[in-house]
Design a protein around this nucleic acid. Structure first.
Length: 493
RNA sequence: GGCCCCAUCGUCUAACGGUCAGGACGCCAGCCUCUCACGUUGGUAGUACGGGUUCGAAUCCCGUUGGGGUCACCA
């Protein structure tokens, strides 16, 4: 339909960055969002992106987008698109990237070579099958499942063939993670495993690539989910082995499902795209997500600008939060009313198209008026599109209320109302309200007497927006046609 | 199971060691009203347990319990 379509993504929000805490270029904040393109963009990933974005914008820093696609088996281009779409939908823009790790394999290889040369990594010839056996054995005996070090001190050339590269993890001492959210967390190096840093097919693995990239890209703050906390000491060992500066870490609590387990698809929606399709507003998603684990006074509804002004990473709660759809719905409903109706009309358009409801070529102004009648009773755009249906096409009467209200005894009254409305020219809701009230008074009647029958006639349902608003949006012609149709329906009964 | 993290209403969260433990969602009831909503008023409901420290503990310490995460040639 000829509805105006605006480019989905603008870099506009980048300009809302507060110039607070701006520092010299040398210690400028650099954060990154580094999703792996192995599926849909999880809502938890979105929250990570959001926190990084906020942190960068608050500190006048940069945010880098990096696609971690070293898992050649599971990574897809489609998933990369999903990530970008999600970021754009939420207006989370980035300053650099997207980089893809598959474009940077030679960089990782250089550092792997360096580790081998410096005797900080070694070739491991154990097969997946052998490793599996070792692991099962260890688990059965009830103790640590780490690699037994069989190939750790192999003579050069002692074995040949397929091999992985393992990092020789230091085994003495302790590692302290000074976490921005959790405070200091200590790990014992005896727990550290000799991680595989290069697969037998030559591709580097996650723990190596994150470290190399974060170091090379000058990342100063790593903000990510708590599920990465136990990876952190391993990564710190790698930073040190490679002689790179260790960044600051901040591990945010996870989002849980109602059963208190990590939120996933089986809890219902977990992908951004689903929320988009369910008709949630971008503003509401951001608002809801930021309130999960953080609060400011007794405020519930925040614009991005307000979040930027008040939010702070170190005020973030440490405990995991359960995703509450009811609360999201409420937040969304607030935003449905808060955004300008023209804006809602604009965003509603695709949902109307999906229901094939725009054949009437509605103009923007008309659509806005319609939105005004619907927004108080629509939690999402999908709900609004549903409720809008009667404006666009003729429907079957909802049988129960039709039988109850469209009865022979209201027929004469319907006739009178029809005649009266036929004589009216001003179909603004205010005028209609006044004139009909006055008219009914002369008839010695109350609005109540005719409200429900009229409602069924005009909207086919027993629940609807106010009658006068409906008439205004419908216009004189449709209003009369529908009342007439109801009169005939009554007669045919 | 090892290691790590966490713990205030059902849920999201407030509370410099001194508050009748506050707000929000949900739920219930009243009001508003042409229906449904919106709005509004009120109600329901919580410091996991046990020890300390202290004149005084939701708050600090220890333990228990509970929940979560993580232990891959995934990220």
């Amino acid at each position: 339909m000829g509805l105006p379509r605006r480019p989905q993504f603008t870099g506009l929000l980048a300009m809302t960055a507060l110039p607070i805490g701006r520092k010299k270029m040398t210690d400028q904040v650099r954060v990154r969002f580094a999703p792996s393109p192995t599926g849909f963009l999880h809502i938890g990933g979105v929250r990570t992106a959001l926190y990084n974005w906020l942190y960068a914008r608050q500190h006048g820093g940069k945010i880098i987008l990096r696609i971690e696609d070293t898992d050649l088996e599971r990574s897809t281009d489609e998933a990369v698109e999903w990530i970008l779409d999600g970021m754009r939908w939420l207006h989370l823009d980035w300053d650099d990237g997207p980089y893809r790790q598959t474009d940077r394999f030679d960089l990782y290889q250089q550092d792997i070579d360096r580790l081998i040369t410096e005797n900080k990594a070694y070739r491991c010839y154990c097969t997946p099958g052998e490793l599996e056996v070792m692991r099962k054995e260890a688990l059965a005996k009830g103790r640590p499942t780490k690699y037994n070090g069989r190939c750790r001190n192999l003579e050069d050339g002692a074995r040949d063939g397929d091999h992985t590269i393992r990092f020789k993890a230091p085994q003495t001492g302790q590692i302290v993670v000074d976490d921005m959210i959790r405070g200091s967390v200590m790990f014992d190096e005896t727990q550290m495993d000799d991680l595989i840093i290069r697969r037998s097919d030559g591709s580097p693995t996650y723990n190596l690539t994150v470290v190399v990239d974060d170091a090379l890209m000058g990342i100063t703050h790593v903000i990510r989910g708590e599920d990465h906390l136990s990876n952190t000491p391993r990564q710190i060992q790698l930073y040190e082995a490679l002689g790179y500066e260790v960044p600051r870490f901040g591990h945010m609590s996870l989002i849980l499902g109602p059963d208190r387990e990590k939120l996933s698809k089986r809890h219902g929606a977990a992908a951004v795209s689903e929320f988009m399709e369910m008709g949630y507003l971008q503003e509401a998603m951001i608002n809801y997500l930021v309130r999960l684990g953080w609060s400011h006074e007794e405020q519930e509804i925040f614009t991005v600008e307000q979040i930027l002004e008040h939010w702070s990473l170190d005020e973030q709660k440490k405990s995991a939060a359960i995703f509450d759809h009811d609360k999201l719905n409420w937040v969304n409903a607030q935003w449905m009313k808060k955004l300008p109706p023209e804006e809602i009309a604009y965003r509603l358009a695709p949902f109307l198209e999906k229901r094939e409801l725009v054949q009437k070529t509605p103009d923007r102004e008309w659509l806005t008026k319609m939105v005004l009648t619907l927004r108080e009773r629509s939690t999402t755009l999908v709900v609004m599109a549903q409720k809008a249906e009667f404006y666009f096409r003729e429907l079957e009467y909802d049988p129960e209320p039709a039988e109850k209200f469209l009865t022979a005894d209201v027929a004469p009254l319907m006739d009178k109302v029809y005649e009266f409305l036929a004589g009216q020219e001003n179909y603004s809701q205010e005028a209609l309200h006044e004139s009909i009230k006055a008219f009914l008074e002369t008839e010695g009647l109350k609005l109540k007497a005719i409200a429900q029958p009229l409602r069924i006639a005009l909207t086919y349902r027993k629940d609807s927006p106010g009658l006068f608003e409906v008439m205004e949006v419908l216009g004189k012609e449709s209003t009369l046609a529908r009342i007439d149709k109801a009169r005939k329906w009554i007669r045919d009964q």
